[in-house]
Amino acid sequence: MSLSVATEPSPGLTEQTTSATDTANVVPWSLVVWNDPVNLMSYVSYVFQTYFGYSETKAEALMMQVHTEGRSIVSRGAKETVERQAIAMHNFGLWATVERAGEYG
């Protein structure tokens, strides 16, 4: 059946995918969550624990960093990954942005 053709990626495509992953590892992206005076501290901590699976200690520390420093890098990874996380944060009502890692340390 002709359908089986589609299950094997072409060698060129595999190579391209691999190199894209490598590049993402070399230049990771950061997900930044910004402070706002509206969202409850308990809610932000809840989101960090349930969405990212962070421990209560880590979630609280990140939440306090957002609160006191105005922003916190809560995740790092490939661009696609942190963009997906940014959408999730926006859906939770948190303001999140993505940036190249190292822009602000």
Binding site: P37, V38, N39, Y46, N91, F92, G93
Partner: peptide, 24 residues
């Protein structure tokens, strides 16, 4: 419910001009 209440609060906060902790 959590996201619905959050979005309501974000909109009301903007209408009320809550931009800083002091405003809040």
């Amino acid at each position: 419910w959590a996201t619905a209440l959050t979005d309501v609060r974000l909109v009301l906060a903007e209408r009320l001009g809550i931009h800083t902790e002091e405003d809040a």
